[in-house]
Write a protein that binds this DNA or RNA. Structure first.
Lengths: 136, 136
DNA sequence: TTGTTATCCTATCAAATTAGTAGGGTATTA
DNA sequence: TAATACCCTACTAATTTGATAGGATAACAA
């Protein structure tokens, strides 16, 4: 299942992506419009800011805004930050590879074989979609 | 992440799939060979039996065996039993569809759009792979 | 028939993860 | 200088996951 964190994060990015004006949008506005717990959303936006997707401004008139154009925000990067590794098992992960200590032979492992294909399929989707593609 | 249940279940199915002889294989043998907690594996095999993948025999010389040929065991079905719905959100699920009560417009929802593509990609993999494909 | 074997079944539990909350700190702006 | 809105840490509740315990039941064989 997709975590609420990822779901809310994607909704927030979309919300920011469709803004006409360039001024920051407040957490409270996004939370209200998208039916998200404000405090929970706050922590999600914070992590999106720390990972370089969002910029922020404090004080009155402050809020969050996209640092890049929606066309330049790849789902591969977004998903890795929000949901974690794209692979379902570490032994097929590109960025977080680990051997399974319980698996004597990776090459003959059925789980490994299947999950490799799943990883490739998911990766293809995420690489071929930017935030802009989700706003159409 | 892939659950241990699914991982162990796939390993057990593979183990049964490569058996030359047709006689039942005991839980203890599979657990030992595949490094799986025996009691946990027991519950997994039980659910695979209840869902029609495995047959079983009690008493001495008993154990589990595949009810179908590996070529006829689709990953779509296996994954649904072990891991649950293939879709990452209910609003794109074929078999377990539910509307998101927090989402006013499914057609314009970025999460929905992305997860539809992810579902299709995963489904394609699972539909095109049988247990036999994982044994090669 | 009786003992052994191995699955069947229910209940329970501990650990980990997830979702959400609380409360104050800090920078910015009017 | 007061109000605003992000920043940050810690905590808590609920859920899920992985694993155990202990006996009931069926099959086989001596």
């Amino acid at each position: 299942m997709l975590s609420k964190k990822t779901k809310y994060g994607l909704k927030a990015l979309s919300y920011l992506g469709v803004q006409k004006e360039k001024k920051p949008v407040q957490i409270s506005e996004i939370a209200e419009q998208e039916n998200i717990s404000q405090k929970f959303l706050e922590s999600i936006l914070l992590s999106l800011r720390k990972t370089g997707f969002l910029g922020s401004k404090k004080g009155k008139g402050g809020g969050y805004y996209l640092l890049k154009k929606p066309e330049d925000i790849l789902m591969t990067d977004v998903m890795r930050v929000l949901e974690g590794p794209i692979s379902m098992v570490p032994c097929v992960s590109l960025n977080f590879y680990e051997t399974c200590e319980d698996c004597p032979n990776e090459g003959e492992c059925a789980v490994h074989k299947l999950m490799l294909k799943v990883r490739d399929a998911n990766l293809a989707v995420y690489r071929n979609n930017t935030l802009a593609d989700l706003l159409k």
